[in-house]
Every structure is written in C-alpha cells, then in structure tokens.
Amino acid sequence: MKVNITVNDRAVTADVPGHELLSDFLRDRLGLTGTHVGCDTSQCGACVVHVNGASVKSCATLACALDGATVRTIEGLSAPGSLHPMQKAFHENHGLQCGFCTPGMIMSAVDFATVTPAPTAEAARRWLEGNLCRCTGYQNIVAAVLAGSAAMQTTEGARST
C-alpha cells in the first residue's frame, strides 16, 4: 500500500506491505536507527515516537495505518548539533546509564511535558510506566524529566511536535 507520511518535517512516500511496523519503517527503510526496538512485545517503550504529536509505541503500530500522519523521532527533536531542552536535561542530570532506553524515554517525556500543566515527580513516575530502564532505578530519569519539563515551559518554540 502506498503511504504518505511526514517524518521529521520531511515528506516520505513509500509502498509498504501491510505488516510493516512503524519501527521497521523508520529504522530499515529510512535509516532512523535512533528509535530502538527493545522488547518488541509492547512493554518497554524504547521504540516510542510521536504520531501527530502524541507518544506511541512504534513496534505496535502499522506503517500503513499512518497514511497522512506526522511522525517525529528522536532524530527530529532538534537540529543536528543542538539539543532539545529535554535531551539537555537528560545530559545534565545523567538520566541514563547504558542509554538504550533513552530515545524512548525522551520522546515519552516530551509528550509528558506537553500535556502536563504542573509536572510533579509522582506524575512523571506514573507517566513513565510504559518506559522501562534496566540500569538506573529511575531517580535521575525522573529528575531529568522534571528539569526538561521546566525548561520546555520557559523555552518558546521548544515544543517542536
């Protein structure tokens, strides 16, 4: 099936088979390997990207179903060489160890900051239920999400999705 999907502000037209997952579409077809596939069973959230501004698991979404949609991945969060405020917050708070879960964490966290008017640590922890980190114990991740949310609220135009 022929689909038109806007990925990171770029129009992409492709003929994709029905069973192609969005995660495979992004990684194998477009070479956007920043989106990670961890569990491949919809549990871990390493594959989280934004579809029309909302965070979704790309390993449980068919590419065909997104004809006409706008997708943003970790690569499209900021211009090359610069960091989005949420990426900067993860860097400054050391919100990672091995880093495998980080792209999904950040895409999920940006959605959290966008839909949560008054972010708290408890709300951040509840939100991150769909993102598993096997290294850190989440302390620094939660700190990063709160710092990034605060930075996004003061940075006009940071809500690139």
Binding site: V51, A54, V56, K57, S108, W127, G130
Partner: peptide
C-alpha cells in the same frame, strides 16, 4: 488503562 502510549492508541 495500560500506559500513556497504550492510551494514545
């Protein structure tokens, strides 16, 4: 229900 990403789909 589930987690935020499940609730979005």
């Amino acid at each position: 229900i589930g987690d935020p990403q499940v609730r979005n789909r």
